[in-house]
Amino acid sequence: MQAAPIVFIQAGLTYPNGVEALTDISLTIADQSAVAVVGPSGCGKTTLLRTIAGLERVSVGSLQVAAGAKRAMVFQSGLLFPWMSVADNISYGLMTRGTPAEQCRVIAREWADRMGLQRFIDAYPHQLSGGMQQRVGIARALAIQPDIVLFDEPFAALDAQTRLIMQELVCDLRRQGVCGTMLFVTHAIDEALIVADRIIVMSARPGRIIADLTPQLADVPSADKRALPAFNQAFADIWAQIRQEVDVQMHEGVN
């Protein structure tokens, strides 16, 4: 894998209906790094991930994603396939790439064990709680051993306690080194500080990058960071950056 699997150069994206979602994005993401993206809602965070995932193309400037990089995405609303069992959902990205069924089954079981889902392996998604569903979503992403993992506000719909547990889970997975290069979109600043090392702050729409911080909090990813005095300091810095953008967004009204 090359040094920078994702490179935006003065990229912008305007949707066909004229909405300008991104503008003048220049961003280089290093291999095996964990980057969080925060910003007011509607600022273009999802759009940014979708361009990396290959679901949208930038309309100006350029985006280069390392050739052959395997990409996986965890979606805000889970988007598990309701008609597939937990096991089939987990191994979906393997199955599409031609992995034999027995091997899919073995890997799905491995990931289910790892995520505490062993009892639900044959259940359908609608039988699981929101937190469990997101675990399946994460397992589906990581089971393909991706080079790049894109998280789009995966825990936004979960209750506060479940969120804390899921954040710890992501830290665990990072320590195990299975997340590759990670982009984690969230609107929660504390979440960004816990799961990532580098934080990109975006402006109100059209999304620009207004800050790029690398707070030195801890050597290994861990939810314990929260207790450090530097954590609160970093939180206050980022909040100061975002605050006025949120104000702008509020006065413009949500599209």
Binding site: M73, F75, L79, I144
Partner: peptide, 10 residues
């Protein structure tokens, strides 16, 4: 969006 999920996963 289910089609998009499918495409993302190859």
């Amino acid at each position: 969006r289910f089609f998009e999920v499918g495409r993302v996963y190859g």
